[in-house]
Computed example of a mutant assay.
Amino acid sequence: MALGNSASRGLWVRYGGEPVTEEQIKFAAEHYSVALLQPRQTYAAARLKELNPAMTVLCYKCLSSTRSYETEGPYTSGVSYTEAEQVEQSGEQWFARRSNGERIEWTGYPGHYQMQVWSPSYRWHWVRNVTTELAGSPFDGVMADNDIHGDYYGLNLPIQGARNVKKFHRGLDRLVKDAGRALNAGGKILVPNIAESRETLGKWERHSAYGGGFEEVFLGWSATDFLDQPSALAQIKQMMGNHHPVSLGQVPEMGVLSPRLTLLRASTDGQDDHPNFLAALAAFWVFGAGQWSALSAGGHDAHNGTPWREELAWDLGAPQGDAVMSEGAWVRRFSQGWAAINLGPKKSGTLTLPPDLVSATGPAPSTLVLPAHGGAIFRYTRN
């Protein structure tokens, strides 16, 4: 299994509800190195692998909920609503419940019901269902959504069986571990959407151990709500370790070694020219130094388009030293380019650029002032 395409740092987050078009598939195969699709989009997954065998194509699955509006598979959850109801009719509970016994429907997401991730039976069936579905499929693995940290969906703890969110954390730790091991044994990877890893030291390392991790709110919660600089640096630090590769196959010692994916998505207003897109790409280079896997950007829950910037296809080359703070911004030189990111709430001082650089639109200036939360990348004209 080929994981990624070094020619592009583009990530296609395409698990929205609209049908995938052939035009989008062809564009994605040419421009992105990693794609995240709905489980029902097996045709699109197969076409992407046909057009670009080096592309990594992952199947969306939710760790924490089931959806009542899905009446037939393949399901976006590891356990269907119907299966969960049938189990409950036999006397076993998988649905999380409030103190009054009411099932918990997520606030803002009608038809999404919280599951008891601490239930060994729920976890076992989740793993069995997903590994069975993925076996022989065109997908390279799973992007496991809602590896939660806090109460994002109106759980209003305490509830039956869980006084606080730590009960959810322990259950998800176990589910990620069990699912990751089972998928790896079958030659597939698991990439959780690891929420707020900066709040729990070591969580990124543990939960990315089976294929990689996805940070869906890179540098900020929305197009206008940014992480402060200490929080952004803490987020980045979790992804900067020397993470061991993943061994795929029934016998780990004899398996195929695959690098872990580091997938990032920044928040914008949905337009490709939004400054947050370029800023995230600058941070991708300044701190990731070309080692992170792929980046996307878009509006809140907007997962139907093909966001793209020309700079995603650039290779800035090998880093020429570490990232350094200069005039209030983080700056890094590369053998084939230069990048800078301002993580602060005020504009930077005046940065002096090396000569012979160009942007996507023309020659670079000799000096540059970055706006608050702004970034820039340039490459040398000799490229």
Rank of each mutant, 00 (worst) to 15 (best):
G4R: 10
A7R: 15
S8Q: 04
R9M: 00
W12G: 07
G16C: 04
G16M: 04
G17E: 13
E18N: 13
A28N: 08
L36I: 14
K61F: 13
C62K: 03
S65R: 12
S65H: 14
R67Y: 15
R67F: 15
Y75M: 03
S77I: 07
G78R: 08
E83V: 09
Q86M: 13
W94L: 14
G101P: 05
E102K: 13
Q116D: 08
S121M: 01
W124C: 04
H125D: 03
V127A: 10
R128H: 07
N129I: 04
T132M: 00
A135F: 03
G136K: 11
S137K: 03
S137I: 08
P138S: 07
D140I: 10
V142P: 03
Y152I: 05
Y152D: 12
Y153H: 13
N156Q: 10
I159E: 06
I159H: 09
A162I: 00
N164A: 09
L172E: 08
L172R: 07
V176A: 12
A179H: 03
A182E: 05
K188Y: 03
I189L: 09
P192N: 06
N193L: 07
K203V: 12
E205L: 03
G220V: 08
G220T: 06
D225H: 12
D228L: 11
S231K: 12
Q235K: 10
M240L: 10
S247Q: 13
S247H: 08
G255D: 07
V256L: 09
P259W: 06
P259E: 14
P259K: 11
L261R: 02
A266P: 01
D269P: 06
D272T: 11
N276S: 09
L278S: 15
L278Y: 08
A280H: 09
L281Q: 14
A282C: 04
W285K: 02
F287L: 11
A289R: 15
W292D: 09
S293H: 00
L295A: 12
G299F: 01
G299L: 03
D301Y: 12
A302N: 04
H303W: 14
W308Q: 09
E311V: 07
E311Q: 15
W314V: 07
Q320V: 15
D322Q: 11
M325Q: 15
E327K: 14
R333I: 06
G337F: 13
K346G: 06
P355E: 12
V358L: 11
V369N: 04
A376I: 04
T381H: 05
